[in-house]
Write a protein that binds this DNA or RNA. Sequence first.
DNA 1: GTTAGCAGTCGAGAATATTGAGTGCTAAAC
DNA 2: GTTTAGCACTCAATATTCTCGACTGCTAAC
Lengths: 341, 341
Amino acid sequence: MLDERKRNILKEIVDEYIATAEPVSSAVIVEKYESNISSATVRNDMAELEKLGYLEKTHASSGRVPSAKGYRMYVDELLKDDNISLEEIKYIQEKLENKADSIEELTKIATTTLSEITHYTTVSVGPKTSGQIIEEIKFVLLGNRMLMGIIVTDTGLVKETIIKFDEDITAEQVDTLNYYFNNKLQGEPIEKIDASLEEYIFRELKYSVKIIRPIIEQMKKLIQEEENIYLEGANKSFELPEFKSLELAKNFVNILDTKELMLDILNTGFAEDIQIYIGDENDNKELKDFSVVTFKHSVGDKDLGTIGIIGPKRMNYSKVISVMKYISKKLNENDNFNKKD
Amino acid sequence: MLDERKRNILKEIVDEYIATAEPVSSAVIVEKYESNISSATVRNDMAELEKLGYLEKTHASSGRVPSAKGYRMYVDELLKDDNISLEEIKYIQEKLENKADSIEELTKIATTTLSEITHYTTVSVGPKTSGQIIEEIKFVLLGNRMLMGIIVTDTGLVKETIIKFDEDITAEQVDTLNYYFNNKLQGEPIEKIDASLEEYIFRELKYSVKIIRPIIEQMKKLIQEEENIYLEGANKSFELPEFKSLELAKNFVNILDTKELMLDILNTGFAEDIQIYIGDENDNKELKDFSVVTFKHSVGDKDLGTIGIIGPKRMNYSKVISVMKYISKKLNENDNFNKKD
DNA sequence: GTTAGCAGTCGAGAATATTGAGTGCTAAAC
DNA sequence: GTTTAGCACTCAATATTCTCGACTGCTAAC
């Protein structure tokens, strides 16, 4: 459908617009990229590309700007080369090397690094609790009336919670709790901590409600727990020319401030590959003026969290995708937390 | 120095400016507050108040706007009555009642509530680790090569960390660790976890470096740990007319995004009372166009965290102070976490 | 299919005019 | 001495007009 030259010109226009944030004129294309043809020829091609929906004009006599369809084409078919420097590779390696104490920590470091290199606002969320397999449960007595409950899952995730009681707990009771909970739950998915578990423990242990109830309550809270959202470089976006529009800037802050929306964004990506949502492609219409790019921090089929970038539609997709790909690969290699020992 | 009428007029101007964000004219004062005197009289008083530095003009023929000194006078001497409704009191009571699982959680709930009622951006930070007294230390074996280290302090703060090893750990080793660590550290301030502790443990236990080193490292990290900043209602500020200025909006996002700055803000308040910093009064010049109001979540002399509001200089001090006072009082009463049991 | 050339469009920015919300000051009234 | 009416003056904000020039689209020639 599109001949080689038109494809090139489309790519050049998107590149140029990403670089300058100004509508791109035929003259600029000739000057910087296509010295062999005249601006009139470029204009003809541009008119064609506009008719096909890849380009738009901001007003009748302006240069061209990519449409959502134009960006999509650019991302899907025109971007081929990686866009990541040796320095950036070295920087990422250094950052991700072994320093994290936990999966969540590693995801955070990756999120920060991603923001540092791309200069966009990045965001991440830890692994989903649901679906994880319980490897071990442990209750630890702290003082006389406080327990810490700890769950270790197959992905290496460790979750803990404090449980308080109105009466004293004995060491023997703790041992018994450990025995029964592990007996029932080891190897089971974490969702098995539910009402039926409470019944089971009641039946087997016959402890007072005052002891069993708080434990079950807290453990349930633990697995339903809202994920912690980690945000980095919110201020960086404000340097971008699109945020000169107060309206847009306000929308952006609103988005970042709305937890549910952020979780939505981070939970849409299912595949392990990089997901790209450009403008209207986002499910949520609040995001119609922005682009979102996400990927899963995962090892094998284990979901260890999701990391994303939120920025203007005029995003440096090339850089963003290249850097994400590399970080994703490194996270996979750097699999410290999935070792079975 | 200021007669009664001038004080009233100053208060009225500040009130009016807080309410409308528009420079206040003599006519408005007569219309809304001082129906007995003429606008010319008000103008004379305003000129006087300006000469004394309490008021400013935005340009030669504009109405008056409070200066920093004016706000300071307003806050220190002119605000007397509480400004909190029964509904608000009920709402706060409901929110703070018993629902938190930990001090940090309670602080977060209070922070959110404060933002909901005042419609300003609020921020908080958990209790400072330093200075806390260790009540108990516990190591728990998870799997064969992973420990969880737990510290419980006198304020009820529970901190935990994961420690990973390259070799297996036995249950006996864990028992011994528990014994020696508690023996050495119970009743001591948390800073005692340092190099000399490492020596002591080495001397007494003679375990391999491979075991001792990671433990000490992680425990040290735990106490140095950067506090988690909790931010609520960043978007609310953007509805305010002062944030029409892109410059100011950008500064604001920058401030919220800079952890060090936020910690600075939250760490300046020493006394238990409410601290108010208006514009230039802030130590950091990034904050010169904003006001910061903070108070400590504390019980007795125990610091359990700090909560603050960041907003425009034209802040509703009356409401903010009243609500903070009430929340502060409630947090004190609601002292679930300081019970010795 | 390509290109030169030119008319036409329209946003951006500068220059100017208009309005009206304020003040400060003066002189008279209290 | 304090208060007030009255009026001249100031100045931001807004609207109006003008000019400029960066573009395109189209036509006709190559």
